[in-house]
Design a protein around this nucleic acid. Sequence first.
DNA 1: ATGAAAGCGCTAACAG
DNA 2: CTGTTAGCGCTTTCAT
Lengths: 346, 346
Amino acid sequence: MATVRDVAALAGVSISTVSRALSVPGMVSDATRERVEQAAKKLDYRPNPAARGLRVGRTTTLGLLVPDLENPFFASITKAVQSRARTHGYAVLVADSDEDAGQELELVSMLTAQVDGLVLASPRSSDLSLLTAVDGRPAVLLNREVEGLASLVIDNAGGVRQSLSHLKALGHRSVAAVSGPAGSWSGAERRRGIEAAGRETGVEVVDVGHFRPTFSGGVAAADLVVASGATAVLTYNDLQALGLVDRLRHRGLQVPRDLSVVGFDDVSVATLVSPALTTVSIPLAALGRGAVDRLVEQLDRDTGESREDDLAGLADEDEPPARPSLPVELVVRGTTAEPRPDGPRA
Amino acid sequence: MATVRDVAALAGVSISTVSRALSVPGMVSDATRERVEQAAKKLDYRPNPAARGLRVGRTTTLGLLVPDLENPFFASITKAVQSRARTHGYAVLVADSDEDAGQELELVSMLTAQVDGLVLASPRSSDLSLLTAVDGRPAVLLNREVEGLASLVIDNAGGVRQSLSHLKALGHRSVAAVSGPAGSWSGAERRRGIEAAGRETGVEVVDVGHFRPTFSGGVAAADLVVASGATAVLTYNDLQALGLVDRLRHRGLQVPRDLSVVGFDDVSVATLVSPALTTVSIPLAALGRGAVDRLVEQLDRDTGESREDDLAGLADEDEPPARPSLPVELVVRGTTAEPRPDGPRA
DNA sequence: ATGAAAGCGCTAACAG
DNA sequence: CTGTTAGCGCTTTCAT
């Protein structure tokens, strides 16, 4: 690989001129800048990011930690994050913790050494572990809130509220709720949201317990849902909904005739099955982008923090930037309908 | 972050001793090593990878380039690659080209500067572009072969052969084939394989043309398949198969009663639909692992190439390491059955 | 076995 | 506007 020296030699200037011509173009004469640029192009010169990073103290690399890349939710997040990071000039190091809290923490400290900031998607570790692992370094939590850390979340409560309203409007009076994993932050949020919405709307909510956020989790929940006597069900996520529908079919029950089903996430398979799944759509791309933007903000602040000085600083402290949860949207497809006139089950 | 100097100061030794104690433990006395290790732990010292990289000339980072992270095939590859890379001590930089050949090439040259080697998964660019972009640097192609580059592929021909044999055994005599994107290397491989297998088995193969490797691509192909009069169809991938089945259903045709369908890839949704898809299963994890292993081999060779010298070197040249395509396996599920006794369609 | 010093490629003072 | 120089954190001769 060509270095500054090679370019400098070819252009007949010093290495610092090369550096300047390429990064602060306004600081050199047009003539030399031209020559340097040509020399650089001719040698296919690319500044060594490691060397620059060492000098400047920034790696222009972000770290992204996800629990499972094969989960379409995180695949989309990853796609959005790396795309947005690139537009900001950052590369992204991806690490998959395999849903393991221990590995998660280790990965955080591995990544920490080689990145400027971290995006932690749905981390499984405890609040405290997370706080100490991050240890004040730039980081943004996705789909999780921890006091003291920047985070970006979706409107979980709003999502389940929309679902319940939809079901009520169809005429359902008793709705089952399948909860997600016991440790899930968003699961807890949604459960709370469902209960609140149930009270508000006067719809009876029957919690059938915690189930894994997978197809088989949904299969396992199905029979309890049927036994509950509810005419509709809200699952923790789409995969569960799919498993539930499948189990129902095997039992000879039809969706939505015998039971209405609403998922959460709107993963792409939701439209590939029939009937297509009624579910809550999450702005995945916006989530990923937002996380990167927030992280880059932090990074920029750390760098050029002495701009408008105390005035701007104080204003910021008085009114911290609004940090709303991202809106979600119920999308009604084929798995919801009016309840059977003659009672809950077949 | 703590540096070597901090550790050296705390341990009361020189910085070079710290470096040695931590990387070549056998080169320092047990006593000092102990002290250095304790100091390092106490300060939570982590060698700065960028600095080490600058000195040693290796970044211990690998680059992975994929066309689309949201495609479950590549999500799995990514998961496997980053996992395997970690066991070899490498971090991985992920870049998504959005199926765009132009971006792909640009990303290769961006990544090149900050990684030791590249894994290029199903690259869309031309052979020549790829060759010049890689330009002799360590790289491994996944799911694509280019003369002059290391690559790892699956047995595409074997997969379609198994599919066709299965259909023939069920009694099918005329099978439609939906091709993938015109530029796809594996698509071409499969098409060739189908034709060869057709000749061998005496089954008539009707190519209905190229379609996008997506659900909608399958929907679009469905009517041509029906019109072809074939009693079964081989699609380019599972997503197509799903779309095809869906379109068939809308036309009032049943799978597998009216038409048998075989996909390719065995993505996880294949089992989530009903009937579950008969498809060709690919060893995703092995593919990802294999690519990393091959890349790391190259890297190690470049480093310590003067081990057994000419003898080993010559032996290697005479007999290049076996590079077989990875075996695939047909998994028969619900979308294939005997053809209707009374003719191809309903 | 250990320390001193050079230097990886780059940028940011500091001269001129 | 441009050149010289120091030094980011680390490994690796080269001495001792």
